[in-house]
Amino acid sequence: MKSFFILFLLIFVLTSLAQFFLPWWVVLPLCLGLAAWRGGSAGAAFGAGLLGVACSWWLPAAWLSLNGAGLLASRVAALLPLGGNSWLLVLLSGLLAGLVGGLAALAGAWLKVR
C-alpha cells in the first residue's frame, strides 16, 4: 500500500511539473521509468499510473473550469458529445490521460519484475 502511495505521489508530482514544459504524452516515459524504478505489484503500478496522471489533469482542469473555462468546457462537452456536461468532460479527460499513464506504469512494473 505504501509503495502504491509513493509511486502515485511521484507520478502525480513529476508528471504535473513536466507537463508545464513538455507535451502531454511525456507522462508515458515518466510513468514507465518511475514504475520500473520503484517496482511493486502490477495492479498497484497500474493504479498509481492511472490515478497519478488522471489527477495531474483533474486538478488543473477542474480549477480552470471554475476559473474562466467553464463555459467553453460545456460547449466542448456538447460538441464531443457529452450532453454539455463540463464535469463529465473533466472526468473523462483525466481518465484518458490516466489510461496512458496506467498502461505505461504497468509496463514499467512488469519490466522490473525478474
Binding site: 507537463q19 502531454w24 489533469w57 468546457a73 468532460l89
Partner: peptide
C-alpha cells in the same frame, strides 16, 4: 483529443477571467 483536452496546453487554457 490528448492535445485538445490537456489542461496544460489544450482548450482549458482558452478560458477568460477578469484578470485576462
Amino acid at each position: 483529443l490528448g492535445r485538445l483536452l490537456s489542461p496544460y496546453s489544450g482548450f482549458w487554457q482558452n478560458g477568460e477571467t477578469a484578470a485576462d
